[in-house]
Design a protein around this nucleic acid. Structure first.
Lengths: 335, 335
DNA sequence: GCATGATTAGGCAACCTTGCCGTAATATTT
DNA sequence: AAATATTACGGCAAGGTTGCCTAATCATGC
């Protein structure tokens, strides 16, 4: 990406001003990556030196890196940066960065999706969702219900309705990132499965190029066949495609085991380094990872006819608020 | 885009092998652009000379350009190019290139979208669609119906159903391209309108990064407010965002007038060179163009409750098959 | 207090990208 | 047929991008 220089430099200034502490080229490079600007650390250093010469940045020490100078802030204020229109990838990274679930404490925040159904539909709805959890086609095995007047993130449940919260698969990003594994969320899509195994993606939308969550779109458009998938092992479910560094492959597998222990397992497949996974090519040095959509159980509901308002990547929520799906279902049957 | 060199060169070879005639750097650059690889003519020449040196291409004459050599074909066969997964932008360009409507003859093929409704719903459906055509929120004013057993592209109308064909806004691309104006289809989205004028895009999906037509997704997910838009002038309609060279701005305006004369007017707004249009930034040297979705009338139907199978970018169809919407509606009322 | 390891910076070199401009071959017009 | 216009090529130069490698600096552990 030959990022017309000046552009790269303002981006660097911006990062530096947001970090608020000295940073080196590596760190800055990572932050730039979040904004969709991919530059090697060396290139960042190249530009940093020019910024130094212009007096816009200052070298603190060859250990700490640089900070933005007063002149740099000035410059940044003048350079009117056209803000991006709010594409989903930004939100994904933001939420993944904010969540703070920890295995050690088995506590913290995770990212959730929400849906709202009518109170009188609850029994039928849980029955629809059960097989999806049973066959592990959702994101882990947790579920939360919210009653009228309660809130799920910024959503308040209206009278006669029930809020359903599922764990969003972006929670996986959050966990990986917290363990030092950078994750790129590439596509949301529809995954064909056969014998409960992934076969190929039939539709894809790139996170980078959409303001609407792809999974939300696919489910709202009723393009899934989650019920059938849960019943027969063949069908079409929501899934997303991520990329991790090839050398982090083992670490990801290990973390996945721990996630499963916390009922947060949602990794459906991990590819080989630089090998296409389910038809999706992977750049050199990276490995593809497929995660199942947290909304899959809700997709099953949608398929059964109801029109359900749903929101993926809704907000952060406390891990403690979620319960194993079996418990939720059992509890409801009793009460 | 620092296209790792070798990659650029194989891409050039591929273009050259598909063109089947001598071509210069400019021509090759345009073709590369279609594949999402943007290189300046000069850069293409740079690589061409290297290909010459490797004996993979051959200079015919400094007027005609180059051809691929036998060795070049060999090389190309070895370089296994991972084919892209079938993103929409490719289909857009393909269809735009294939259609051959001509103003002079007022005949030829155009690109259509299809939808299928129940026969008994026809009357109500036409009534729903009328205001949308009336207020010019669709793509032009043409419409075609197909009865059971007839076909629309590869779609055969089932018993008791009626097929509805509308003109796809990609037809505009086709017309512009045929008049030498290269068009880039950037986003499909939802456009907020006020007072029948475009205000801003509320959702966007990049054509380059999706396998599902964005408009199809938005309409199927019932995110439009076309009925309201037609009734009150305020609402949310399907629209797409295109880019044309800044210096073609006048030519586009002129062509739009002719399109309107052929009932194919669908350009909703043309921006200023390099100026953001409805919140979307435009690269230097280009101008933004907003076109209304051909499916907007069908979106109005969908909003009214029915669940309508629809397909955008369905196929080519003869211009003669379409009739002015007023005629279609009148004819149906009589019969 | 000193060795070790991690992190950062920057020199060097190779290569990619591109604007500008002059030259050459061919089409088109007069 | 000659003049003009068009189109393509490639030299030149400036600048972006990046891998490789070495030096400086700081935290940490012995």
């Amino acid at each position: 990406m030959n990022t017309h220089g000046a552009e790269a430099r303002t981006a660097i200034l911006k990062v530096l001003s947001e970090i608020r502490e000295p940073a080196g080229a590596t760190r800055i490079g990572v932050e730039l990556g979040r904004a969709g600007i991919n530059l090697s650390p060396r290139t960042v250093r190249f530009h940093l030196r020019q910024l130094d010469e212009q007096g816009l940045t200052e070298l603190i020490s060859p250990r700490a890196g640089r900070v933005i100078s007063e002149a740099g802030r000035e410059e940044l204020a003048h350079a009117n940066i056209v803000e991006r229109v709010g594409f989903i990838d930004a939100r994904v990274d933001e939420l993944a960065y904010q969540m703070d679930f920890s295995f050690e404490k088995s506590a913290g925040t995770i990212i959730m999706n929400t849906a709202v159904i009518l109170k009188r539909e609850l029994s039928r709805s849980l029955a629809q969702m059960e097989p999806v959890f049973e066959k592990d086609l959702g994101m882990g095995g947790l579920l939360a219900l919210a009653y009228p007047g309660e809130t799920l993130g910024r959503l308040t449940i209206p009278p006669d309705c029930i809020g359903i919260a599922t764990v969003c698969s972006v929670t996986i990003n959050g966990i990986l990132v917290r363990h030092g594994i950078p994750v790129v969320s590439r596509y949301g899509g529809l995954l064909e499965i056969r014998n409960f195994k992934p076969v190929r993606f039939v539709e894809l939308i790139e996170y980078k190029g959409t303001t609407l969550d792809p999974l939300e779109a696919f489910i709202a458009a009723r393009m899934t066949k989650v019920r059938e998938a849960a019943r027969t092992g063949e069908g079409i479910i929501g899934a997303s495609f991520r990329e991790v560094p090839a050398n982090a492959r083992a670490a990801v597998k290990k973390l996945h085991t721990r996630m499963q222990a916390a009922s947060l397992g949602g990794i459906f497949a991990i590819g080989e380094p630089h090998r296409p996974l389910c038809g999706i090519p992977v750049p050199d040095g990276r490995t593809g990872v497929i995660t199942t959509a947290g909304l899959n159980p809700v997709a099953a509901l949608q398929e059964s006819g109801a029109r359900i308002p749903l929101r993926s990547l809704a907000s952060l929520e406390d891990y403690a608020r979620f319960k194993p799906w079996r418990d939720v279902c059992r509890q409801y049957r009793r009460g």
